[in-house]
Computed example of a mutant assay.
Amino acid sequence: MQGDHSTVAAADQRVRIDWDGRPVDIEVRWVGAEGDRPLLVFLHEGLGSVAMWKNFPCQLCEAVGCRGLIYSRPGYGRSTPRPPNELWDPDFMHRQAEQVLPALLRALGVAAPYWLFGHSDGGSIALLHAARFPDAVAGAVVLAPHILVEQISVDSIAAAREAYEQTDLRGKLARYHDDSDSAFWGWNCIWLDPRFRDWSIENDIATIHCPLLAVQGLDDEYGTLEQIRGIARRLPQTQLLELPDCGHSPHRDQPGAVIAAARALLSGHRGENRSVCAAR
């Protein structure tokens, strides 16, 4: 990322940052009551966006007494699409964690500490951000995160490619993304790239010292329980929640259980998680 200058545009709907020497507009939504409350930053899945979270962030923020910040990463939702022929490199999640998210928080005037709530790729990005900025993150909840590439993930992502090319999946994604090809092919191509098979953040996360809650469904079609159990082996402060009758999206399949566990985690560390938002 080149430079530090960022501006807020269109109230709280779009934030312009400078990333890799080019301006990028980030779709942003604030939820929850303002005031002296902990801030919870939501990081979406590999095909997600602000809109795809639906009402869950509002429900969670109301339950735990937080202010919520939801955003769409570049290439997703209403944010600047991926350039037409741009292919992501295996470090794409590191770049989101170490470049894009810090630039967005600076643009919004968000001061540490803050909490992170990440799903799937967003969960991995949350872990990488907490590892890179250990003093800034008060704690994190990660749903179905990836810490290494498993065959089950590759097989399901290959099946998603077939569905995108042969079914109405493209049309369904168009409800949530200005450019569904930008969102889908950025994610799909890198996950199926042979260079990505050796991707792992198992060593990267060793510097995390904040409280963690790692959640995974027993029926997750994109990863096994090794993903969250691997986190717990390396980070003993991790609380695990393994949910039956639950696939890759615990916040959709088992929202009550996720909210209850997140509320318990945050309430146990309430005094450690004040942050300030200078811009709305």
Results as ranks from 00 to 15, higher is better:
Ala206Arg: 15
Asp193His: 14
Leu225Cys: 10
Thr207Phe: 10
Trp191Gln: 04
Leu213Cys: 10
Glu221Cys: 07
Ile190Pro: 06
Glu226Ser: 14
Leu225Tyr: 03
Thr224Met: 03
Asp219Ser: 12
Asp193Thr: 13
Glu221Ser: 00
Ile205Arg: 02
Ile190Ala: 03
Arg229Glu: 06
Leu218Thr: 04
Ser200Gly: 08
Leu213Gly: 01
Trp191Gly: 00
Ile201Gly: 02
Pro194Tyr: 15
Asp204Leu: 07
Asp198Phe: 06
Phe196Pro: 05
Ala206Ile: 11
Thr224Cys: 04
Leu218Lys: 15
Gly230Lys: 01
Cys210Met: 01
Pro211Ser: 13
Asp220Met: 02
Ile228Cys: 02
Val215Cys: 11
Thr207Arg: 14
Gly223Glu: 00
Ser200Pro: 02
Glu226Gln: 15
Arg197Trp: 05
Leu218Ala: 06
Glu221Phe: 08
Phe196Tyr: 14
Arg195Gln: 14
Asp193Gly: 10
Leu218Met: 15
Thr207Pro: 02
Phe196Asn: 13
Ala206Glu: 15
Asp198Arg: 14
Cys210Glu: 00
Thr224Val: 05
Asp220His: 00
Thr207Lys: 12
Leu218Pro: 00
Gln227Ala: 06
Asp220Lys: 06
Thr207Asp: 12
Ile190Glu: 11
Gln216Lys: 14
Leu192Met: 13
Cys210Tyr: 10
Trp191Thr: 05
Glu221Leu: 14
Arg229Ala: 12
Pro211Thr: 09
Ala214Arg: 02
Ala214His: 02
Glu226His: 15
Leu225Pro: 02
Ile205Leu: 13
Tyr222Leu: 09
Asn203Cys: 10
Glu226Cys: 09
Thr224Lys: 06
Ile208Phe: 14
Val215Phe: 03
Pro194Phe: 15
Asp193Ala: 10
Asn203Val: 09
Glu202Ala: 12
Tyr222Met: 08
Leu192Trp: 05
Pro194Thr: 15
Glu221Arg: 01
Ile190Met: 07
His209Tyr: 14
Gly223His: 00
Ala206Val: 08
Tyr222Ser: 01
Leu212Gly: 04
Asp198Ala: 13
Trp199Thr: 09
Ala214Leu: 03
Asp204Glu: 11
Arg195Tyr: 00
Asp219Pro: 05
Ala206Met: 10
Ile201Arg: 07
Asp219Phe: 04
Arg229Phe: 00
Leu213His: 08
Gly223Trp: 01
Leu192Gly: 03
Asp220Thr: 06
Asp220Pro: 09
Thr224Asp: 01
Asp204Tyr: 10
Arg229Gly: 01
Leu212Phe: 13
Arg197Pro: 07
Leu192Phe: 06
Glu221Pro: 08
Gly217Tyr: 00
Arg195Ser: 14
Tyr222Trp: 03
Arg195Ile: 01
Ile190Tyr: 03
Ile190Leu: 13
Cys210Asn: 09
Ile208Met: 06
Cys189Gly: 08
Pro194Leu: 15
Leu213Glu: 03
Asp219Leu: 12
Arg197Asp: 05
Asn203Arg: 14
Leu213Ala: 09
Asp219Trp: 03
Cys189Val: 07
Gln216Pro: 00
Gly217Phe: 04
Leu213Ile: 05
Trp199Glu: 11
Asp198Trp: 09
Ala214Val: 01
Glu221Val: 08
Leu213Val: 12
Ser200Trp: 14
Pro211Asn: 12
Asn203Trp: 05
Ile190Asp: 07
Asp204Cys: 03
Leu225Thr: 06
Asp220Gln: 08
Arg197Glu: 15
Ile208Asn: 04
Trp191Cys: 11
Asp204Phe: 08
His209Phe: 13
